[in-house]
Write a protein that binds this DNA or RNA. Structure first.
Lengths: 224, 224
DNA sequence: TACGAATTTGAAGAGATTCTGAATATTCTG
DNA sequence: CAGAATATTCAGAATCTCTTCAAATTCGTA
């Protein structure tokens, strides 16, 4: 899961990033609207945290643009002014949620999770697929009700495959999703092989049918 | 799917090619406009990535020529200058999309897919033809809803035939479309015969009517 | 019908891709 | 800061695909 934090207060963005990393999100920061739009232009973030009170422009216009693309995932507005006007304007322009500063980081995290769930899973916290249960809130995976211990990367990898079920996902896409920086990793997929092996092993061991198919030369497919 | 990347920065073109190969595109590179025009003259690429700021001429004129031919598939302009003027000029001259450097390769890949879809499938991601379903996003083929496992070349071959349905496609054209290098393969179509046989076998086995007709001395036709 | 040319078919080797287990590096946790 | 857990790299093994080859078949034409 990748987030973009649009915020110019370094202190704040730093603590947000630290906290959210702890929640297993990959974070990027934009300190102004221009950068933010460039970034959203070129990557589909799962959620954007948007401080609408930045010096270089009107945040609500930026929100409008984000939503116009219909490309970005969720958008949560964070704003120092907790004026009702802003709130309403924000929601009308399509923000998925609104959070007034100062806020608790745990609250922010919960809102982010909710927004992502709403967009990706129609608001369902739990995904049931045959013997497999995916709890995106608890971040647990279980087979026939019995939990399976996955590492972070394994969980992320699995979730990404499940989110794209019945579609072939390229190793490029997987690599981008799993690696934090926009690092160029397109010529070494060894780490994918490693995680994939471990994930499959754990799942099969837990009694789950092996739904993950390797498509030679193309990628992987969660086939269910 | 075959692309032409017109770009003089070796580093950049190399990483573009590496990435796009991972997405199952066949790529050729031209380092100047002259070479680019020669290449587009002699082959109909699915999409051309055009850096309009190359030393040997005006990129927009090249774009104009490409579009005048109406031969090339899509054209995506990539440019270091993200000036609005360029953008508008580019789109007016018929570029299908525009991407400012630096960009994420995943973004580029998504745009290419979109342009090709728009041109070849009227923007549809899924192609339904009787019992046959072609999902160009999921990269899957199914018969009566049941998936058929095709290899890369089989998928490419099939897609090419379907894209040209009810038209005879020559083995030359197929060969050019399937082979990566600009190698001259025009005297040995054995590999086409092999792929064609395997493809037909798989499809018939999956319960699909054999829509692929061999036209003696001319080529093949996907007849539906 | 018979001939040469084009296509189909089956099999096999070369080459590329993926898997695997172990070694190393990194991150987390107390 | 040390020890544990996790992530990544590496190299060899296993697997799959692509292409080529040769033999069999089909096709068009004489």
């Amino acid at each position: 899961m990748k987030l973009l934090i649009v915020e110019d207060e370094k202190e704040l963005s730093k603590s947000i990033v630290t906290y959210l990393k702890g929640e297993n999100y990959l974070c990027e920061v934009a300190v102004d609207f221009k950068t933010a739009l460039e970034k959203t232009e070129s990557f589909d973030y799962d959620c954007v945290l948007l401080d609408i009170t930045l010096p270089d422009g009107n945040g609500l216009n930026v929100l409008k643009e984000l939503k116009a693309d219909n490309k970005t995932g969720g958008v949560i507005i964070i704003s120092a002014k907790n004026l009702i006007d802003d709130r309403i304007a924000g929601l009308n322009l399509g923000a998925d949620d609104y959070l007034a500063k100062p806020f608790h980081l745990s609250e922010l995290s919960a809102r982010i999770a909710a927004v992502i769930r709403r967009r990706r899973f129609d608001g369902n916290k739990v995904l049931e697929l045959n013997e497999l249960t995916f709890d995106t809130l608890a971040k647990t995976v279980s087979v026939n009700g019995k939990g399976v211990d996955l590492t972070r990367k394994e969980y992320d990898l699995f979730l990404y495959l499940v989110t794209n079920k019945n579609r072939v996902v390229s190793k490029n896409a997987i690599a981008e999703h799993l690696s934090g920086d926009e690092a160029d990793v397109f010529d070494n997929f060894d780490f994918i092989y490693a995680h994939m092996k471990n994930l499959k092993k754990k799942m099969v061991l837990a009694g789950c049918e092996d739904y993950i198919k390797s498509i030679y030369g193309m990628g992987y497919k969660f086939d269910i």
